[in-house]
Write a protein that binds this DNA or RNA. Structure first.
Length: 210
DNA sequence: ATCGTGATACAC
DNA sequence: TGTATCACGATT
């Protein structure tokens, strides 16, 4: 088989989720549909959740619905929120410890199949975790599966060009508090790319550069 | 600010 | 058995 050094593996994800979440900014999420069509987008917004954090779905009890958060790094956790939207997380750290990264927004490379009518939303077709799953046709049927290159879903490392844009200050990653939660509001575990139109929401004044 | 929508966890 | 809650998004 061909080794693809661009692909992110479980080893890279086997670290505390805040570290993984911040470094996933600029990486590419790739989805392959059943008919072989490929949808690609750069990750521009993430949040970290882990055991001990009251906002984490795995912070109370291990149940069938949050089981994937306890899976080995690279396990896909998809849950239904408010009865109509799916949200995608990638489990991190280690098995039997609830930990993962919520992928909140993508800068898509092109209009995904089925969304041609919504093309006027342009850069904002995957601006938010629910919209992202709609755009990539991700639902709970993926829950509990592993990321697998060239199959349904996988991740690729930052390109050298993107890394360079961070190093020379052309691009900036902002760290701030998470969105849409009632507990654990104070933890600064959200990251997004500054000045990116595909980010779900702009931050507050107090947001920090990293 | 409000509302749609449904699974789930936990109370009783 | 009921019911409060929810890592959202569109609309006003």
């Amino acid at each position: 088989m061909t080794i693809n050094k661009k692909t992110i593996d479980g080893g890279w994800l086997a670290r505390p989720c805040p570290e993984v979440a911040s470094e996933l900014i600029g990486c590419t999420l790739v989805r392959r549909l059943a008919d072989g069509q490929i949808i690609r987008g750069a990750i521009v917004e993430t949040e970290a959740y882990q055991e001990g954090d009251p906002a984490c779905h795995g912070s109370r009890r291990r149940t069938p619905s949050n089981e994937a958060m306890f899976g080995p790094p690279g396990t896909i956790y998809v849950y239904l929120i408010y009865g109509m939207y799916n949200c995608l997380n990638i489990s991190s750290d280690r098995a039997d410890f609830a930990s993962g990264v919520l992928i909140r927004a993508l800068q898509l490379e092109k209009i995904p199949p089925g969304l041609e009518e919504k093309a006027k939303q342009g850069d904002r077709l995957a601006a938010g975790p629910g919209k992202l799953c709609l755009a990539l046709q991700i639902d709970r049927s993926l829950n509990g599966q592993q990321l697998t290159v060239n199959e349904t879903l996988w991740l690729e490392h930052r390109t050298p060009e993107f890394q360079q844009s961070l190093d020379n200050g052309e691009n900036t990653i902002i760290q701030t508090t998470r969105i849409g939660i009632s507990l654990g509001k104070d933890l600064p575990w959200r990251w997004y790319l500054a000045n990116c139109p595909a980010v779900s929401r702009k931050g507050d004044k107090g947001d920090k550069r990293t």
